[in-house]
Amino acid sequence: MSNKILQIVLEGLIMGGIYALISMGLTMQYGVARILNVSHGEFIMVGAFITWMLTTMAGISPLLALIICMPVTFLIGYILHRTLYKKLKDLTPSAGAYEGNAMLISFGLMFIIQSVAQKIWGSSPQGYKYLTFSFKIGKTAIAVNRLFVLFVTIIISVIFYFFLNRTRMGKAIRASSQDPAAAGMMGIKINRVMAICFGIGAILAGIAGSLLSMINNINTSMGMNYTVIALIVVVLGGLGSIPGSLVGGLILGFVGSIVNRIDTSLYMVVFYVLIMVLLLVRPKGLLGR
């Protein structure tokens, strides 16, 4: 029995942790920069494939590849925001219209990124072996690669927490997410902050992709699934709430690990029922304001 519980907890933490990373990334982009980034999952895919390429072709350790991924994905995100979205913002007068149009642009990006990736990396599943061994706690076999992923997820989350709460930039981001107009008046360069938020969102997606490639096979059409998960978790947690995304992601992970043991095929059904009930009980999300 205790074995089962240990398994459920670990499984829930591992997938939940990855979901939380992805969702916190989208929260940065949607909660602060007001971009419902439908191409979020494509950044996950790009992170996964960069890691895969560096690992299999250049022989670099996946962990090192993950670190290389971070500036790459950040730059892609930052530049995209500084060019495309900044231009859109200048051209679009109202906030509502901006949100709609920003989503459309991210749709266009999704098509382009996915298609280019498919041209480069093909459509077949890819993967590599990393830390594929296990140790036992009691009778429970625990895979080292999954545990390692959990470990990295926790480290990243802690760093992210300190960044948001202890640095000037983090404070500027939090101020901008609460009231962009007031933050602007306080002397915060709002456009730069938003571009950085978008870049950070891309980093978190890239890291999640790197981590996923360590424990699962990857393919160029994998992005959409994760975008959907992130969208749901972000809203479930409460718009713009980073702790909300963390909690939402973990809930999702635990629902998965529990339902997996009852009837694996019911997983998505239970998951969506839960989301809808939670939304009805708390119309502003779990930790929404």
């Binding site: 398994q7 670990l10 499984e11 591992i14 997938m15 895979a143 999954r146 699962n216 699934n225 998965g256 690990s257 997996n260 043991r261 009837d263 694996t264 095929s265 997983y267 998505m268």
Partner: peptide
Amino acid sequence: KAIPPDIQDMTSI
């Protein structure tokens, strides 16, 4: 056991 196409973790199985 039946599994959905988007399964992410097969530890339990």
